[in-house]
């Protein structure tokens, strides 16, 4: 298959709003990159991809009654 990558984020919206943070396990990210991305299932996912590759982001709330959306994505170089 030609390779595009999907990055999926799952958020426990109620817990995030209650605690005021997306940390503490309230957010997990995973992808389907064929190149063995690291930190799957954590907020610190490092997706391995090649230059020019298409990446799609989706987000999902744990509870179907708590909508969540991606507002913006910023790409910055990591130290």
């Amino acid at each position: 298959m030609e390779s595009k990558i999907s990055i999926c984020t799952v958020v426990d919206v109620i817990e995030s709003l209650s605690g005021g943070t997306l940390q503490n396990g309230n957010l997990c990210m995973m992808d389907n990159s064929p190149y063995n991305s690291t930190n799957q299932g954590t907020p610190n996912l490092c997706t391995l991809c090649y230059p020019g590759q298409t990446i799609n982001w989706t987000i999902l709330a744990l509870d179907v009654q708590t909508p969540v959306e991606i507002k913006n994505i910023n790409i910055s170089s990591s130290g």
């Binding site: 799952v10 426990d12 817990e15 503490n24 396990g25 997990c28 995973m30 799957q40 744990l62 509870d63």
Partner: peptide
Amino acid sequence: TYLFDNMKL
């Protein structure tokens, strides 16, 4: 697979 629930609390 990746499993989640909302019972972390």
